[in-house]
Design a protein around this nucleic acid. Sequence first.
DNA 1: AGCTCAACCTGGCTGC
DNA 2: TGCAGCCAGGTTGAGC
Length: 278
Amino acid sequence: MPELPEVEVTKQGIEPYVQGKRVTAVKIYDGRLRWPVPKNLEQILVGQQVALIKRRGKYLLFRMDDGHLIVHLGMTGVLRVLKPSDELKKHDRVEITFGKHVLRLHDPRKFGAVLWASDEDGEIEKHPLIAKLGLEPFSDDFNEAKAGKHLHQHAKGRQIAIKQWLLAGQAVVGVGNIYCSESLFSAGIHPEMAAGKLSLPRAEKLAIAIKETLKKAIKAGGSSLKDFVNSDGDPGHFMLQTKVYDRAGLPCRVCKTPIRQIVQGQRSTYFCHKCQKK
DNA sequence: AGCTCAACCTGGCTGC
DNA sequence: TGCAGCCAGGTTGAGC
């Protein structure tokens, strides 16, 4: 599920149950995630309070007394707030208890991560996983005046296809595989164009497209994942109205030309070859 | 430094 | 039904 919108919606959903609360227990059901979950996580966390939760790219950073709990949902991770008595489900990996509520990470494919970054190891912004991330799409550094210039500057000289460049998240974070195709469509940019060919006007158009796409998706995510306390956690069946993603062969919603699917960097890309120009 | 590609892991779907 | 093969929202790390 998780691209930036889902992570943002997850953050908003769990915040009321977690912020200001103190950890009373930790259980690791299967710690073999992307990296091993620290074996002593319980020892570290119990007694510590969550000051706040920040989202950085697709990472959730729980500000604790002595450091940060880093959580990433990978491809299939879901964080839900439940009651301690709620039945464990297959693929539940880690749970953190805050008195009456537990936060459970459910992650079938185990690409997610649960890590501890102590304050003793320096600022969280300098953590190896965080340091090289691009700008936050909704930050002031990526505002209307700056965003296009930033993208233009960052793409300069790059030979890589713009789809892969954008997806890499070194210019701007949070644009996953779905919203990457969607944003490029909205900006009228062909995914195979060399990133370095991005003109300033088109960079500005792309910046707007990215923000609009993510903003709409956050709204949609909000309607698809509404009740984090619900013990069955069914996210519902909200169908995202994509313009190109997963629409291979179907008519473009603008010009009716069949949508094409190609593979770039081992990932599917969808686009309209008539609406999107190199 | 930039780029490509394999790898991590499980489940669901398609087609024989 | 069964089974092989392919695909999937992310990201790193090795190797050129």
